[in-house]
Amino acid sequence: MRLFLILLLLVISAPLLATHDPMATDTTVQRQPPTAEHLLGTDALGRDVWSRLAVGGCRTFSIAAGASGIALLPGIIFGLVISAVPRRVIAATDIMLNAVLAFPSLIFALIVLTLLGQGAVSLTLAVGLAQIAPTIRVVRGAAATVRTEGYLESARSLGAAPGRLLFVHLLPNIAPTLFAYAGVVFSYSLLNSAALSFLGLGGEPGIPDWGVLLAEGRQAFRTAPWIALGAGLAITASVMIVNRMANQVGRHPRR
């Protein structure tokens, strides 16, 4: 948890620490290894890799956060509502959910991108939409585990309305599970959005995010590994920290 907050603070404040304009090209310093002037070296167009990494992190994190919101909000609401309806009634939703779950989330996002066209907003939407169905499934599963608890029964017998029952009595009790799952959604969003950027579907060319940086650095990795190194490590470390936090929350729900 503490690590995650530090990571978040770092990513948010990093653009302030950018030493150069991340878009400014400089033909005199193409593919230079790290120096005091260019902390992480320069890329093929002479742009400062550190500044691109710093600014790109903010973009990558915003897209991942936006996508997580798009996945979690409808996913939680829909999942809760579905959990309250008898299974027979929702056979159709079950089939629909299964239809979506057949697709790897990256492939799903890729197909949604076909529909929406490219760009940052489409990217966020595509990555987020791809994770609604898994969220619904997790929420429903979590709700099923507390469904038969005594406090729900007593609330029901006191005449609580179905909505109140779900959102006031049930939701807080599955909150730790959901919080842990939100971490999982965030790390998938980060990986998938960076993957789509890596494939060149992130929209505006030249604007840095960690996927774009990796794609740019990959080709030149043999001669100029510093271009991709920062982005590769940054994605891995971020996802690892988020996953670890999700694991901890999931394991010690009463904290």
Partner: peptide, 22 residues
């Protein structure tokens, strides 16, 4: 296992190509 789940495949793939092929 943590690494397998956190590192994006386009990063480990790039590293693997660099290490084993180059």
């Amino acid at each position: 296992l943590d690494l397998a789940l956190s590192a994006p495949i386009y990063w480990t793939g790039t590293l693997a190509i660099w290490l084993f092929a180059v």
